[in-house]
Design a protein around this nucleic acid. Sequence first.
DNA 1: AAAATGTTTTTTCACGATAAAAGACATTAT
DNA 2: ATAATGTCTTTTATCGTGAAAAAACATTTT
Lengths: 300, 300
Amino acid sequence: MSKSNNVYKDAYNRGLRLLGETKSLPSEPELGALLGVSRTTIRTILARMEETGLIAWNKRSKTVLRAPRLDDFFPEEETDTLSQIIERSFMRRLLAGGAEAGMQINELELAREIGVGTTSVREFLIRFSRFGLIEKRRNSHWVLKGFTRAFALELTEIREMFELRSAAAFAALPEDSPVWADLDLLEDEHRLLAREIAARFNEFSELDERFHRLIHRASHNRFIVDFYDVIAMIFHYHYQWNKAQERERNEVAVAEHLAYIAALKSRDLGKVDAACRGHLKSARNTLLTSIPDRAALPQP
Amino acid sequence: MSKSNNVYKDAYNRGLRLLGETKSLPSEPELGALLGVSRTTIRTILARMEETGLIAWNKRSKTVLRAPRLDDFFPEEETDTLSQIIERSFMRRLLAGGAEAGMQINELELAREIGVGTTSVREFLIRFSRFGLIEKRRNSHWVLKGFTRAFALELTEIREMFELRSAAAFAALPEDSPVWADLDLLEDEHRLLAREIAARFNEFSELDERFHRLIHRASHNRFIVDFYDVIAMIFHYHYQWNKAQERERNEVAVAEHLAYIAALKSRDLGKVDAACRGHLKSARNTLLTSIPDRAALPQP
DNA sequence: AAAATGTTTTTTCACGATAAAAGACATTAT
DNA sequence: ATAATGTCTTTTATCGTGAAAAAACATTTT
């Protein structure tokens, strides 16, 4: 097996959802744009849809014959990218404990355990290295630096520097910039979530990311924007791992976001600075309390 | 051919230099530590040294028989890492012009042109992507973002943020910190270079990097320290590319460094800030003047 | 007993090969 | 003429493989 067809399977699943909405499907290039894949993949999808009796396909005409059933969909786990699979496995190991700082990481062992080739693991580790949690010894193994207190502090230090600057840039944006409309939409979503926080508190994580990414984009600096990948990654797994007081934490955070948004809209740099600092401080504390306070091992 | 033995060749060349200094070589583990390679490689080296009559090798005794000749050394180009070779080729293409923003980068083509496997090129591009000059389209090609004015400005913005903070941290370091001794040594090197600037101006680049890395290390933040890799990389190729007024530029920079060092030693945060800002401003201008002022293509 | 050498095993690095997916070109339909 | 479909080519993603290099284990020397 050399390459899984997860792109096809994922696009196929998303394609099935289109069937409920129309009587006939659009042209191949249009479908390609819609699903974000090439025509080659679209044609493979259409061929299968015809085979399973979902559509009648003859050149331009692609008539929907029936609505998709549950068993028409490919299983979720077959639509994942290899790198997603590797990332999940790796992070599970990392967070499942026993991942002491200084520990060696073995490409071959990881690859065998996950059941993939070494090349994919290597590429994953190289990409992952920019998160500052692992480090390569030339011609030798990778070293785990550990998800330590020091790491969290270094991460949040940069985050605060970048976000304060981005927030200031945001507030200085002209009246007619489209970001203000985006901000209004996000504000509405926050209010809605605040009202139903008891039931929907676990939807905050996704909203949080969209909100902060909007602000960082105002910096117009690719290094700042890209750095949010590091933060998002860490917070993503941190949220999955640490569910303690999740509801309360998120409720507080939503309120802080609303204050932050109000400050941005006021365009008062002093208020923006204060609201941003306040929110980032509690984000940092949340992260810190979830990290066990054992001393980091000395680095060789 | 699956893997070149450049590690061995490079270590062998460095090992030859040891021969001039002693009558007999130390133990295998000691040699390994000295040259930064494993015992396996050391034994391959010793085997060849015996073969070419450089030493007599019997278990613990490794007697030097003759001094190495020029033709004992492996050619320089055979000691390069594959990733160094790829990086050089890639940067040459990038800087040789015709590298417009938005241009596609083709792994296969690059690999063929350089004469290496695609895996190595892929891994290089992944590592290189953190410099912010290229970007990947999923399941498709890489896109060149271009060495533009915008890039230089974004880079220097972060640099200034990080270095101002590091410099302040540096100045606040306690009297007994070993960095002050390092700084004194660097100061001496600067003075020496300043005196002989006419002949040695091209040695500045290396000194520059060591100086700034020392300062950044005071931040004790891995993201700040690692970011200097991006700066070093850009300045390295920029210096190679743009030799205009090199002597004058470096002469100015050495003077600025000396002022910067004096400010640090004064521990006066105001002075440090001013000296740091001054130097970074002229570094930015140097970089900017070397970039043609054509408008960046609109990003899709 | 500690450290070196000798030997064997494991891991990393890099390649070519192959299926999936994208992209280019040719042909046909509106 | 433009846009779609049909067909063919190229590129990307991933694996297995093998040599280089590291690491582990066994044996000898001081």
